[in-house]
Design a protein around this nucleic acid. Structure first.
Lengths: 231, 231
DNA sequence: ACAAAAATTGAACAATTGTTCAATACAAGC
DNA sequence: GCTTGTATTGAACAATTGTTCAATTTTTGT
């Protein structure tokens, strides 16, 4: 019983691993179950036997990807005990980039998630609840704290908080989504080893970019540049 | 002669329009030439006759998309005569968002370009040279001016300029690439009518985020991080 | 008006797809 | 060791794909 179960799970694992590579490389529609099975060394029927069909395997792969990426880089990665909102934001951005750019964690884990974001193939809703919404809620908490908004508990954050969250997510994700463009514009930089530098830039850029509603009016129009930001 | 040419071009235009809709909706691999031809009211052989094959039609569609989008919103959209770098940046961000989010210009135009960015299907290099690199060069010019870098003419901008450019592009593009996520997190906002507000946020966020190298030291930490700038 | 040439069409084709299910291998009970 | 029940396999299948090319229509030259 233990033997058979182990064998079955082993085949499943091999399929998920092989499928992850192929799905991430070719995208869902261009991936054939034959290529997956060839790579995994299983018969073609195995996919339909273990996962009902191609779609079922895809959902299982995505589930595994999310769990795996968040197991290695949890939301609070780099935070221990108390921390200021600024420190939390710095850690959030760094771990976010690691999650999507680190080649150490099987490279396809977050590749698939991002693929599903820009071009859903059947697992979008599940991914939303299991992975994206919790991440957003965590970031929202940090931003509400920084902007001194009180409605952290309720889901009624201001437009400003939401727009800042998209600014942060956009800056990070572009280093993944636009990786082909970045590589074409600047072939020499950046390799995965530069994640720290990228995180540093985005953090500084963002910390300056965020501004509390009443803090300071428009300053970029006609007046002089010299205005140093208070606080 | 005029008649035949006109007829041929008319069929080509119908095919490009139909193909644009379908390619943008389903992606390249999932699109069938039969669906395109059905939509365009042409026989199945027409694609191979007029464009050699499916791939040829795809390239033609992308070419048409880029020309069309930049014809409606040119790089200098919103700028007349002299303008400060800040005003240029504001206009750049606004027109960039319009180009990718405006539903007025056939919605699939930039959808395809972004699809090709995150998942190339054979026209990446051409798109890079015809559309993305010029856009980047224009933005680079603005940023070099703001950051008072002198090497505007040469292609040797600093890492800071490049990272700021990716921060801007990322913030803008996420409103397109992550549109499904944004719609799921906040079903009530934002509709295309809000492009102005989004542009305003990104501009202000970015103007604060950009900082001249010597302008002001790190202010959010006790110390600067180890590697400031290698290479 | 007629013939020659070029443009256009769509039925047929070979290749590939996801899925099935009878045949096989394997384990458990006695 | 044999029988029964379950797990696994892979050849066969129907559906769909992009592409072809002989047949047909349309245009051109005289």
């Amino acid at each position: 019983m233990e033997e058979s179960l182990k064998r079955s799970d082993d085949t499943k694992a091999k399929l998920i691993d092989a499928a992850g590579h192929v799905f991430a490389q070719r995208g869902y529609p261009s991936t054939t179950v034959r290529e997956i099975c060839g790579r995994a060394g299983t018969p073609v029927g195995a996919v339909n036997y273990h996962f009902r069909n191609k779609q079922g395997l895809y959902v299982a792969v995505l589930e595994h990807s999310m769990q795996s990426a968040f197991a290695k880089y949890p939301l609070q990665y780099g935070i221990e005990g108390e921390a200021t909102p600024e420190e939390k934001l710095r850690a959030f951005i760094h771990s976010f980039l690691l999650r999507i750019l680190d080649e150490g964690v099987p490279a396809w884990h977050m590749k698939l998630v991002n693929q599903e974001i820009s071009d859903p193939a059947g697992a979008f809703d599940h991914m939303m609840e299991a992975c994206i919404r919790p991440t957003y809620e965590y970031l929202r908490g940090i931003l509400c704290e920084m902007l001194e908004e009180e409605n952290v508990e309720e889901g009624r954050e201001s437009d400003l908080v939401f727009l800042c969250a998209t600014s942060i997510a956009g800056q990070c994700l572009y280093h993944f989504m636009g990786r082909n463009v970045i590589a074409a514009l600047r072939p020499e930089s950046f390799n995965p080893a530069d994640i720290g530098r990228i995180a540093e830039h985005i953090t500084e850029f963002t910390l300056r970019g965020i501004r509390k509603p009443g803090e300071q009016g428009e300053r970029h129009r006609k007046e002089a540049h010299g205005t140093a930001s208070a606080r």
